Simulated scan of single mutants.
Amino acid sequence: MSDQAPAALAPAHDAPKVRLGTLTSAEAAARLAAGATVLLPLGSHEDQGPHAPMGDYLSAERISEMIAGRAIGQGHDTLVAPVLPFGGRDFFGSRPGGMALEQSTLRLVLRDMLDGLLRHDFTRLIVVNGHGGNAQAIHDVTQAVLLERGVLIPSFYLWKIAGGLLPELLDPVQARASAGHGADPLASVAMHLFPELMRPDLIPSSPPLPRSVAGLFVSGFGTARFEGVEIGLPIELGDDAVTGDASLCSAETGALITERLVSLGAAFIAHLTNHMAWQDLDG
C-alpha cells in the first residue's frame, strides 16, 4: 500500500496563507526570510453601542487579512500576525463586558510582540491599529524600537483614516451626522463584514443628549466645554456609548470604507517595499 495520500485528500497549496498562525515554522521562516511584510492588528473589546459586537478587533483582523490578500495579489508577500484583542484602557471601563489592558501592560505586550520578530531580523512590520486607546502606546513602543534598533515600524490607524474618508465617500452632511462612537465608520464596517453579529433592532433612534459633569457639558472622550473652550476631564464613558447617528450607517457605506482601507493598505505596503523605507530612513 502506498504511503502517499490520495490526490483528492492532499492539502491544497494554491492560495498562499495570510495568517501567520496557520503557517508551519518552516513556511514562516521561508516567507519572512524572503521579505514578507507582517501586519500586527490591534483592536479592543469594548462597548460599541447596543447594536454592534463589542469585539471591534474582529474588524481590524479581517481588514488586515484583506489587505494582505490584496498585497499578495499585487506581488508583495504579506502575513498577518494574531490579533491582539484587548486595547489600552481609556474611557470605556464603566461599560459591562469590556476587557482592556492598562497602558503600561499594553506597552510591554506590544514590545514583546515586536521583539519576537525583530530578534530574527524580520523588520518589515506594520501595526494595523483599530482602537484610539492604543495610539500612544504604539507611538511610544515603535519610537523606542527606532531609537534602539534603527527599525521604522509604521502604524496604519484604520478608524482615523476611515473617519477622514467619510466626507469623501458620503454626503458631507450625512458624514457629519453619522460620525461618532457606535456609528460611522465602525458600525457600517461591521454591518458589511459581520452582518450576522449586528442587532439593527437595537440601533438608537437618536444620539443621547450631552451629559453634564460638574456643571460642564461633556463634549467628547475625556473632554468638556467651558465658555467655548475644551477642558480635559479624567472621566469614563457613561451611558452615551453612541455619539453619532447609527441609523444612518449601512452595509453599503461599510463596503465603501472597507474597500478604501484595503486599497490604501495594500498601496502602503507596495510603497514601503519599493522605497525600502523599512531601513533607509533618508530614502
Score class of each variant (00 low, 15 high):
Met1Phe: 12
Gln4Gly: 04
Pro6Ser: 04
Ala7Trp: 11
Leu9Lys: 10
Pro11Arg: 09
Lys17Gln: 11
Lys17Trp: 01
Arg19Ile: 05
Thr24Gly: 03
Ala34Asn: 07
Gly35Cys: 00
Ala36Leu: 02
Gly43Lys: 01
Ser44Trp: 05
Ser44Val: 05
Ser44Cys: 09
His45Val: 12
Asp47Gln: 11
Ala52Asp: 05
Leu58Cys: 03
Arg62Ala: 14
Ser64Tyr: 00
Ser64Asn: 00
Met66Ser: 10
Gly75Thr: 07
Thr78Leu: 08
Ala81Gln: 02
Leu84Glu: 08
Gly87Glu: 08
Arg89Val: 02
Pro96Glu: 03
Ala100Leu: 13
Gln103Ala: 10
Gln103Gly: 01
Leu110Arg: 00
Leu114Asn: 00
Leu118Tyr: 04
Asp121Cys: 11
Arg124Phe: 06
Val127Tyr: 00
Asn129Val: 01
Ala135Trp: 05
Ala135Ser: 13
Ala137Thr: 02
Val141His: 02
Leu146Ala: 12
Leu147Tyr: 07
Leu152Asn: 12
Ile153Glu: 01
Pro154Gly: 05
Pro154Gln: 02
Leu158Ile: 09
Ile161Gln: 03
Ala162Arg: 06
Gly164Ile: 03
Leu165Gly: 03
Glu168Gly: 10
Glu168Thr: 15
Leu170Ser: 11
Asp171Cys: 03
Pro172Thr: 06
Ala177Pro: 04
Ser178Tyr: 06
His181Asn: 07
His181Leu: 06
Met191Trp: 09
Pro195Leu: 03
Met198Pro: 08
Arg199Met: 09
Pro200Ala: 09
Ile203Asn: 10
Pro204Ser: 07
Pro204Cys: 07
Ser205Thr: 15
Ser205Met: 13
Pro208Cys: 08
Leu209Gly: 12
Ala214Gly: 09
Leu216Ala: 03
Phe217Asn: 14
Gly220Trp: 05
Gly220Lys: 01
Ala224Glu: 08
Arg225Trp: 12
Ile231Phe: 07
Pro234Val: 10
Pro234Ala: 05
Glu236Asp: 15
Asp240Cys: 08
Thr243Tyr: 02
Ala255Tyr: 03
Ala255Asn: 08
Leu256Met: 14
Ile257Thr: 03
Ser263Asn: 13
Ala266Met: 04
Ile269Lys: 07
Ala270Asp: 10
His271Met: 15
Asn274Met: 14
Ala277Met: 12
